[in-house]
Design a protein around this nucleic acid. Structure first.
Lengths: 155, 155
DNA sequence: CGCATTTATGTGTATATACACCTTAATGCC
DNA sequence: GGCATTAAGGTGTATATACACATAAATGCG
């Protein structure tokens, strides 16, 4: 046979391409629902990590989100500009605590049912069993990707 | 029980958050491998859709990638700037064909084993069965997200 | 105490992503 | 043929994302 169509495998075999492609589409669904409160899914996720919690540092929030620290800094900017969040100096004066303002809390209360509608739409489209399987696989993958790389062991 | 910790569900129950979080991490793995040829995983995916194929239009490539059309335009720019691709006018003079240059083909040949190494690392970390399950669920989800929204039916 | 190191953060730069809006070319209908 | 409609493409603007590099504060050790 001599590999009849090896060329296709360079894309169809790619886990990351599939992951990103599905993430693009799914993000649009959530963003369209959340547009009514002018929040993106990423901004919603940040707020979800900030309400009902001791105000975390940028570093801690980055870990919770699985984001690069500098990405968190940039992503917080529009929310701070809208007065939904503010940064407060911590006891350790290197760090900053991220505090949700009353306006932020109010917008969060408005956003919750919109997120719920988006989430319900997704579960309806994918099916309950498939959604649960997907959650399990994504969480497991995220955890395993966070483990130390063999090539990255300390010298 | 009266919902002991309802607050957590606003994030932990979110399919899109999990999807994006895992995509961020996994992208870093591929990008680090592909850095040797100065390509990102997204750029690699574009090239994979362009080699060994009749040069597609921007519109067709966007459909293959599951990307917005305008995102494809922007993402092609750095590759065109490096001389890896070029745009040619089509018979239909509204459209443009995206053609891989010899330099682009040569870089593609260099990139393939690097992608392969990244993909192998992922499959090793996640496990073969989990990787296969993930592929299936992601493809199925992408397909179902592409179906017409009930709210978006034509007037 | 004093300095090297570590830790927390921010900035410059570049790509990734999509929506609203605009231009141009092909199509269809009379 | 002529004009309304549709289809392909690009630009302006804004967020998302991360790496390299810079800054400032806390820590640790001699």
């Amino acid at each position: 046979m001599s590999e009849p169509e090896a060329g296709h495998n360079w894309l169809k075999g790619c886990t990351c391409f599939r992951l990103r492609r599905t993430a693009r589409r799914m993000t649009q669904v959530y963003d369209h629902h959340l547009a009514a409160v002018d929040l993106t899914l990423t901004q919603y996720s940040l707020l979800a990590n900030l309400v009902r919690r001791e105000p975390p540092s940028v570093h801690a929030l980055a870990a919770l989100m699985g984001m690069d620290r500098t990405t968190v800094t940039r992503t917080l900017k529009p929310l701070i500009g809208r007065g939904l969040l503010r940064l407060e100096a911590g006891a350790d004066r290197r760090s900053r605590h991220i505090v949700v303002s009353p306006a932020g809390q109010a917008l969060w209360d408005q956003a919750k049912p919109l997120w719920r509608a988006a989430q319900t739409e997704i579960e309806t489209r994918l099916g309950p069993a498939e959604t649960a399987d997907l959650h399990r696989l994504l969480d497991q993958s995220f955890a395993r990707l966070g483990e130390e790389h063999p090539e990255m062991l300390r010298p």
